[in-house]
Simulated scan of single mutants.
Amino acid sequence: MAGVLDSVNQRTQLVGQNRLELLLFRLNGRQRFGINVFKVREVLQCPPLTAIPKLNPLVRGVAHIRGQTISVIDLSMATGGRPIQDISKCFIIIAEYNRSVQGFLVGSVERIININWDSIMPPPKGAGRASYLTAVTEVDKELVEILDVEKILDEISPINTALSSDVTEGLDIADVRDKIIFIADDSSVARNQVIKALTPLGLEIEAAKNGYEALQRLKEIAAETGDVTDKVGLLVSDIEMPEMDGYTLTAEIKNSPELKNLHIVLHTSLSGVFNQAMVKKVGADDFIAKFHPDELANAVKKWLGLKIDD
Rank of each mutant, 00 (worst) to 15 (best):
L105F: 08
L133H: 12
L55I: 03
A51G: 05
D140E: 15
N114W: 06
D74L: 04
I87L: 08
D74N: 06
I93H: 01
L143I: 13
L75I: 00
S71Q: 11
S76Q: 09
N56S: 13
L58C: 02
P48I: 07
L58A: 11
G126Q: 12
G126M: 09
G126E: 14
P57N: 07
V72M: 00
S108L: 05
T134D: 14
F91S: 03
G61S: 06
G67S: 09
G103K: 00
N116M: 11
L49E: 07
L75Q: 02
V101A: 05
W117A: 09
I112Y: 04
I92Q: 01
R111G: 03
G126V: 07
N98I: 05
I87N: 08
M121A: 11
I52S: 05
P122M: 14
V59Q: 06
Q102F: 14
M77I: 01
V139R: 05
L147A: 10
I146W: 09
P124M: 12
A63S: 10
L49K: 00
R111T: 15
E96Y: 04
P48A: 10
S119M: 11
R99T: 09
Y97Q: 04
P53C: 08
T69D: 08
N98P: 03
A78E: 00
R111L: 08
T134H: 05
F104L: 13
K125I: 12
I65A: 04
I112N: 07
N98Y: 03
C90I: 00
T134Q: 11
I94E: 00
T50I: 12
L105Q: 03
S88I: 00
G107A: 05
P83Q: 13
L55S: 13
E142P: 07
E142V: 06
L55R: 02
Q102W: 15
A130L: 14
V136Q: 13
V62Y: 01
G128K: 02
I94M: 02
S100D: 14
G103N: 01
Q68L: 10
D140H: 10
L55F: 12
F91T: 01
Y97N: 03
G128Q: 02
R66G: 06
W117M: 14
R66Y: 05
I115M: 09
L55V: 07
H64E: 12
S88A: 12
I65T: 04
K141A: 13
P48S: 10
M77E: 01
T50F: 10
I93P: 02
T134R: 10
V139C: 04
D74A: 07
I70Q: 04
I70V: 15
G80W: 00
T134Y: 04
G61W: 02
L147K: 07
V136Y: 07
P48L: 10
W117V: 04
Q68C: 06
P48C: 08
H64C: 06
Q85T: 14
I52H: 07
Y97G: 00
E138V: 14
I65M: 09
F104W: 11
E96S: 05
R82D: 14
I94W: 00
L55D: 09
D86R: 11
L147H: 07
G67E: 09
T69C: 10
E145M: 10
Y97T: 03
K125F: 09
L105N: 01
M121R: 14
A63C: 03
E138R: 10
